[in-house]
């Protein structure tokens, strides 16, 4: 996803001279070509995210489109007040890009993992929050963010994410994508969890004969309410899947909508419990450990549907 973003941004920067790339001492080789192509539009602010975000606001107030990029916890939490006041209060055209969200930084531990970013960014007025599912979507989101006027937070994976979209499709901010049909339940996922959810749905179909709908809710804010409405009418329940804390993320966002509906619908959330990750290991091992691997999702969904 990271490479897809960088490639896409390079193309966009050739078309649109307003685009700048700001980073805080991150992207050793990642940005080499961008840097060589646009030496004056690549600014390394050093390890000083607050200043970088404030300066991004200054750039946007002067007509530029800054993409502010670093590891997700630092580009959201270290400078949260600058995002709130300088970017969102002014409603500026600043694009915030967090790399390695969820548990992607694996063995680097909780300081580098990001499981609270959806909760805090979607609480901000004027903010749009997007979590692309795969490299192709990351590319599309980058372009959509340039065309959209206003603050956008893009939460990326790290690298080597599997492909969800084999072929081209139409991307629109705020419009979720249905990836699979089924009536037993609707699984709504976001970010890298879309792939695992889709795989789990395939296994549920093949091995258990359970047919579920799978939705890619790439935009966390504004949330596609229509897709939730349809799921609650056309399927027998909604289960959300996210690599994020159960507090404030996709599950909370969908729950806010579902709980206020007249017709009650069966609703459950799968995500990370309210705790810091307590083990080291690689990304795949951590996903297994925290119940987010394909096999863990198959079991979780089966159990949830059994208790219904």
């Amino acid at each position: 996803m990271r490479d897809a973003f960088v490639k896409s941004l390079l193309e966009l920067a050739k078309e649109d001279k307003r685009i700048f790339l700001l980073t805080a001492d991150i992207g050793t080789f990642t940005f080499d070509i961008f840097r060589q192509t646009f030496p004056n539009r690549f600014i390394n602010f050093g390890i000083a995210e607050q200043n970088m975000m404030g300066a991004a606001a200054g750039l946007a107030l002067s007509g530029k489109i800054p993409f502010v990029y670093t590891i997700a916890p630092f580009v959201t939490m270290r400078c949260f007040e600058q995002i709130r006041v300088d970017v969102c209060y002014h409603n500026l055209n600043v694009k915030i890009v967090g790399v390695g969200t969820g548990l992607a930084y694996g063995s680097l531990g909780p300081t580098h993992q990001t499981v609270e970013d959806i909760a805090i960014t979607r609480a901000l007025p004027n903010m749009t929050v997007i979590s692309p599912a795969d490299p192709l979507e990351a590319k599309k989101v980058t372009r959509a963010a340039v065309l959209y006027s206003g603050p956008v937070y893009i939460r990326l994976g790290r690298s080597g994410e599997p492909v969800v979209y084999e072929s081209d499709y139409e991307y629109q901010i705020g419009r979720a994508v249905s990836l699979r049909e089924g009536k037993e339940a609707t699984l709504i996922a976001t970010g890298v969890m879309v792939y695992n959810t889709l795989k789990a749905a395939e296994i549920l179909s093949k091995e258990e004969g359970i047919e579920v709908r799978v939705i890619n809710m790439h935009t966390l804010k504004p949330l596609d309410q229509e897709v939730i409405e349809k799921a609650s009418k056309q399927t027998r329940g909604i289960i959300t899947v996210e690599e994020h804390s159960l507090i404030g993320g996709l599950g909370s966002a969908v729950g806010e909508i579902v709980s206020e509906k007249k017709n009650k619908i069966f609703f459950r959330r799968i995500g990370l419990n309210d705790a810091f990750c307590s083990s080291y290991g690689n990304y795949e091992e951590l996903k297994e450990m925290y119940g987010l691997s394909v096999s863990a999702l198959v079991n979780a969904v089966k159990n949830i549907l059994n208790e219904r």
């Binding site: 004056n40 539009r41 600014i43 607050q50 200043n51 970088m52 975000m53 404030g54 300066a55 991004a56 606001a57 200054g58 750039l59 946007a60 107030l61 002067s62 007509g63 530029k64 800054p66 007040e81 600058q82 006041v85 300088d86 209060y89 002014h90």
Partner: peptide
């Protein structure tokens, strides 16, 4: 009014961004 302020420690960074654009343009 060029920038909404109130929370302290924000104005100089915004100024840095504006000055960078002044140089660039």
């Amino acid at each position: 009014v060029e920038a909404s302020t109130g929370s302290l420690g924000h104005g100089l960074s915004i100024g840095v961004g504006m000055a960078l654009v002044g140089k660039f343009d």
